[in-house]
Design a protein around this nucleic acid. Structure first.
Lengths: 230, 230
DNA sequence: ACAAAAGTGTTGTCTGTACACCCATGC
DNA sequence: GCATGGGTGTACAGACAACACTTTTGT
């Protein structure tokens, strides 16, 4: 009896990963969806997904799928859980592990949209998706809100240099609410994790707004003192 | 080509569930562990687990495994995520979905310990477990803390009637810290979700302490106003 | 000179925290 | 009558929320 055969009697299932990809265009949070090019549910809107292979970890499968379908690497990803209903996929017994990914939308937009039938949808305009993908999407939004309130993941969605107004717009989009500009600025500055540059962004105003950087070193030192971001 | 055959080319994996079972003995939070009676890693301490079958959902498998190994039904359970490293189980490629469960320890204790090689361990005395089960345990503790701070799941660990001291001891065990009795009482009472009984618990003090019930109806009405429990 | 976005302080309210004594009862 | 755990109020500090005007500069 080899080690492998111990489990021979048990059922084996297909295991998939699905990616909820978030981007921010400066005003709205958006999710990247594709029109499926294969059965079942061909031509319907869907998350980007793929199957986990025998010799790769589930996390690695998520990274691979994201890379294959978008060309993106070194992306913030986080596992959301496991969707395991028997009939969730009509074409077979597939257990799916959804991940959410945060990308800087402007760096990659063109290549993505062309390559596959991909499209950015504002979160309140997301169409009906296949299977249980809308539930996954909603879970991802909730998790993004939860996570963004206690950890500095918002910066994954912004360009490296950003203005305070851009940062506030992002958080307003994530939390679907609006903040007082003075309170927001004071709160963010008091965290001590931003680095102010001398350079100004001059496109969206005549006066110009100072650019800031997220200072990851400062954050790493302070992170145990920071309970709440917003 | 049948619907099923569409996915024929993809690998199929073993999918398991593992249960982190928490109980509270009045003083300490404890986890229920078993000494494995089968290979691999026979006679080592382990979480309670089993394989997901072709015709049952992953959630249903977790409920079934808990029922089979403890006799317990109608138990609070919550999925924690997915552990998918290739080599996590040396005997085969197994993806595991851990769940945490909260049980009222006193109602069931005897039957459990006998039936299997099961034992309650205080959380700071948990031994080395097989595979990645210690990581799962730690994740479960973190999740329990997170969840208990915003939702009324503590009551799943207490007998139906409990005193404020018992409730405080529980929260102190969960958060590994101690609270001021007056502040705790005021906070809990201000939530308006407890029902005070006329009856007193007379074992642990001469004066006696009033019993309370968790009032789920009141909670359901108030839940959107309650952001934070403790 | 004006339009448009950037930047900046103060005050009141609420929430959380620290702290100590009397009460009821069984023995 | 005393030992044991139960029950209760107040004061201070920090966090959060509401609020409006001046600055800069391109046209």
């Amino acid at each position: 009896m080899t080690a492998l055969s111990i489990y021979q009697q048990h059922d084996r299932l297909l295991v998939a990963v699905d990616c909820i990809i978030f981007g921010f265009d400066g005003q709205q949070l958006k999710a990247l969806l594709i029109k499926r090019s294969f059965e079942p549910e061909i031509n319907k809107w869907s998350l980007m997904g793929g199957f986990v292979q025998q010799d790769e970890s589930v996390d690695a499968a998520a990274v691979r799928v994201l890379q294959q379908l978008t060309g993106l690497e070194n992306i913030y990803m986080e596992q959301l859980g496991c969707y395991g209903e028997v009939d969730r996929d009509p074409a077979g017994r597939v257990v799916s592990i959804p991940y959410f990914a945060l990308i800087k939308i402007d760096e990659h937009e063109e290549e993505l949209l062309e390559k596959f039938n991909a499209k950015w949808y504002a979160l309140d305009k997301v169409p009906k998706l296949i299977f249980d993908h809308n539930r996954m999407m909603n879970q991802a939004i909730e998790r993004l809100q939860l996570k963004a309130s206690t950890q500095p993941i918002g910066f994954e969605l912004l360009p490296e240099k950003f203005t305070l107004t851009q940062l506030q717009n992002l958080y307003e989009a994530i939390f679907e609410s609006s903040f007082d500009k003075r309170n927001f600025t004071r709160k963010i500055n008091s965290l001590g994790i931003l680095q102010k540059l001398d350079e100004k962004e001059k496109v969206s105003s005549r006066k110009g707004a100072f650019y800031y950087l997220f200072d990851r070193d400062k954050y790493n030192k302070l992170q145990h003192e920071i309970k709440k971001f917003i």
